[in-house]
Nucleic acid binder design. Sequence first.
DNA 1: TCGTAACAATGAAACGATTCAAAGATTGCG
DNA 2: CGCAATCTTTGAATCGTTTCATTGTTACGA
Lengths: 338, 338
Amino acid sequence: MNRTASIKDVANQASVAVGTVSNVLNYPDRVSQRTKDRVLRAIDELGFVRNDAARQLRAGHSRTIGLIVLDVGNPFFTSVVRAAEDAAALQGSAVLLGDSGHDAGREANYIDLFQEQRVQGLLISPVGDVSERLDLLRERGVPTVLVDRQADESKFSSVAVDDDAGGYLAARHLLDTGRRRLAFVGGPTSIRQVADRLQGARRAVDEESGATLEVLGSEGQTVLAGRSVGNMLVERGLDGLPEGIFCANDLLALGVMQSLTMTHTVRIPEDVALIGYDDIDFAVSAVVPLSSVRQPTEALGRTAIELLVEEVDSQNATHRAVVFTPELVVRQSTAGPA
Amino acid sequence: MNRTASIKDVANQASVAVGTVSNVLNYPDRVSQRTKDRVLRAIDELGFVRNDAARQLRAGHSRTIGLIVLDVGNPFFTSVVRAAEDAAALQGSAVLLGDSGHDAGREANYIDLFQEQRVQGLLISPVGDVSERLDLLRERGVPTVLVDRQADESKFSSVAVDDDAGGYLAARHLLDTGRRRLAFVGGPTSIRQVADRLQGARRAVDEESGATLEVLGSEGQTVLAGRSVGNMLVERGLDGLPEGIFCANDLLALGVMQSLTMTHTVRIPEDVALIGYDDIDFAVSAVVPLSSVRQPTEALGRTAIELLVEEVDSQNATHRAVVFTPELVVRQSTAGPA
DNA sequence: TCGTAACAATGAAACGATTCAAAGATTGCG
DNA sequence: CGCAATCTTTGAATCGTTTCATTGTTACGA
């Protein structure tokens, strides 16, 4: 088992200096065609592959950006990740992905790991409050951008989506299509996104005289949680139902939809209008195509990278907080009453 | 902006030799308590973080394993990835993830990238045929394990699931519950998994006198593709329907289910039994809980890592091909006829 | 033919951690 | 007190690349 060839082996094989091989690799224009050919042939013969560790060591930093998300299973984050990867690739960096799973310990592990890797910077969707862990990063001078979380601009740059506005959009749409008695499904409200979306919805309802908003707590934002809320609603009978239901995310909405349609007594949207949040792929292909609120995930991921690059390039410590506005996607589940 | 502290800075601060600092980090027992305290304090004061690039350079290899999958969006792979990460973590390695998206070019990029990173080995679910790209890896001596693909044991180790057996299981179950006229939904058959599952199903049908198998091609394995197949079936009317439908994956099955149930004329499982493949999370929470064939994804991921570690440790070139058997998961969608 | 500019190639130094032979300190025992 | 055995600490060498000041070559106009 012969160890992998180094740049020195290539230099020997091609009878040139190591610096020349390096130039062939990094500044081909500086090298004459003749030598270049010889070197390239040697590289081929020896199956030489650059050692990235040595490059990094010399360069003092990697060509890597760390990204820590709360849950890779969540389509919202999957989409942000994809966009960030593409944006990073465009400017020659790769993304290292970490999944904290809402766990502060795992988050801390990834922060340490990424620091050892000397990432150029960090994108992070932090667990809980923006804490001392992050302040430490600031002190260390690790450029950091918060994702899906607004931050004090004096401390960090951030990209986020206005969940209050999203909640308002959803409720406003239900009101605009003539529904008055509304319900919000989601919980626990200790999750910021849930709280903000509810707050926005409440704002819209308060604007409209005669409109009411009932809050139906759920245990998490899953299809099953939605189903149990839906079953509870079915038991009320047709008269007890709200006219419009806004769910804190699409999974909940799909669950509610299943419960309601399974009985074949409640019709969507004729009896009840239903709207979700996130516009996941399954929303289009639900039994009744689901209206939703789309978050500009691609823009989020791309902008996060851009802000990070800004921080890396300019040393001055001015940060920017970018807030995106979500977008209403109307489908059959909230079509006007027949 | 003061650059990050190195082990030398720590040594100065603590008035010891660099070797001592290294020992504190790697062999704490070799160092006296007094010095250890001093060094640790210095590390803390300077905010020292190990430079992984330098470690790797010295060590000659990383503590990283490369994993290239065909599609991270696919729950099957997500699950394999998770299991592999856990197994790798247990023995002190991290997993670098690459998504080829069924594209040979991207696959090649990741292979190169991972070689530059000097990964300990590679787990790969290869695009198309096991090709010269992989032979090159063998020549270079990069330990490699194929995932979800059986391979010539003289060349590679591999872990796979027996898709033929899975197809057999599904069809056998439909037959066992009294269905005779069966249909297979999936395509194109150029995808090995699809072809194997179909072949297994055919085998079961051939065993049973009087049973028939109709093949309904689909364009891909998505919910929408399933919906269009479903719509086509609905148009045939109740009498024209098969008694049991086996879909090449759960997404297809969910699409078919939606088309059939939307009309409220076809009942599942009374009129038609429906079974999918993969047992994704959505299968449980479908309108009618979906029977499926579960693949032992955790075992796949874990075993892949184990085989890789075997290859890394023992230099001898004996490979192993492990094939797992899938498992039937019966739910309401194939309950016995009323 | 000479001088000089432009171009090519050279190779030692540096990056930061780990290793290991060797030196130094400490302990216990006769 | 002297010696050996054990425990600590030292620091130079090493990994593979990139950088850059320096040297060597070539080409061209005067």
